[in-house]
């Protein structure tokens, strides 16, 4: 038998974590409950709207979005995909997943873009934030579930919270990256014409960083899609739950259509958000941002 560290020498890291979480749960419960509130409200709102619409209206809307953002082929693809989801009987689940995505991504934008802006303007802040983002991106998705359940409980809203945290890093990173690659002479021009810091941010930095931010949005959306499936494990509703049920009941058909619906949703949304990138990129630089999307997919986030 191999030697092991004697029991009395074991570092009780598990107890440390337990203690910290207990402390947070006991002392900060009101704060965590308060955080649920805006997320829950938004989720209900978006679900309400999506559920109130006849399915074909949503199909048409996505067909239009797909067409405008990625051409008529993709418009057709979106129409067929959403119609198929409807006719497979997964409409409500899909709309719940969509609502989770919209909510999570909205919060990622509202929190992540300002963080990215501060990071892009302050080397110190970025040097603090960067290791945290690295850890977040190397942590497997289901590891997020444990603390979230401890702090927020189970259900769809805690699921959305886990999704927000999991999907946040790319948009922060790429906002930061976008701000940092704004050409110095363009910024200098702003300064030479008497721009304030704020004017320079609004008129130069952000517009020039926008394509990069949109790449971040695209990545964040894809990560949120992954997480929106995983959070079924903590009781969140949606297509993930369909897959989970199918697996639990050894119902391959159910798990299969759930998986198919997720893939169709993912492709539809991915191409549409890639269209945002193209739309915000000045015509002369399109190829550059095209390559940015591909590079990001093959190598991970650009180092910076």
């Amino acid at each position: 038998m191999m030697e092991r560290v004697p029991r009395e020498y074991l570092l009780r890291v598990d107890r440390l974590i337990q203690g910290a979480v207990d402390f947070l749960v006991n002392e900060w419960r009101p704060a965590f409950q308060a955080m649920r509130y805006p997320i829950g409200r938004m989720l209900d709102g978006v679900s309400g709207v999506l559920e109130a619409m006849p399915f074909w209206v949503v199909v048409v809307l996505f067909a239009l979005a797909g067409w405008r953002m990625a051409g008529w082929r993709h418009g057709l693809f979106c129409a067929v995909s959403f119609a198929l989801i409807a006719f497979m009987g997964l409409w409500d689940e899909a709309m719940t997943s969509l609502a989770i995505l919209v909510t999570a991504v909205s919060f990622c934008i509202v929190i992540g873009v300002p963080l990215g802006i501060v990071a892009g303007r302050s080397d110190r802040f970025w040097s603090l934030l960067q290791p945290l983002l690295d850890v977040m991106q190397t942590t497997p998705s289901f590891v997020y579930l444990v603390p979230v359940v401890m702090l927020f409980g189970i259900g769809t809203v805690p699921g959305v919270i886990a999704t927000i945290i999991f999907a946040m890093p790319p948009i922060i990173r790429l906002t930061n990256h976008g701000l940092r690659q704004v050409p110095a002479d363009t910024l200098e021009a702003g300064e030479a014409f008497g721009a304030t810091e704020w004017q320079s941010l609004v008129n130069i930095r952000l517009p020039l960083a926008l394509p990069s931010i949109m790449v971040g949005l695209n990545q964040t959306l894809l990560m949120a899609l992954v997480m929106s499936v995983v959070i079924a494990m903590i009781g969140a509703e949606g297509l993930g739950l369909t897959v989970l049920r199918g697996i639990g009941a050894l119902d391959v058909g159910l798990a299969g259509i759930g998986g198919l619906a997720i893939v169709l949703l993912a492709i539809s949304l991915d191409r549409i958000t890639q269209g945002f990138v193209r739309l915000t990129t000045p015509s002369g630089q399109r190829s550059r941002f095209k390559s940015m999307i591909t590079r990001f997919r093959t190598e991970g986030a650009p180092a910076q």
């Binding site: 050409p183 002479d185 363009t186 200098e188 021009a189 300064e191 030479a192 014409f193 008497g194 721009a195 304030t196 008129n203 130069i204 517009p207 020039l208 926008l210 915000t280 000045p282 002369g284 630089q285």
Partner: peptide
């Protein structure tokens, strides 16, 4: 200083430094 830059003194740059989104 901003006032001076806005009204009295303007600059033209070697690499144009135009805003591509405008």
């Amino acid at each position: 200083l901003r006032q001076v830059r806005r009204t009295k003194i303007a600059m033209v740059f070697q690499n144009f430094a135009l805003l591509p989104h405008k």
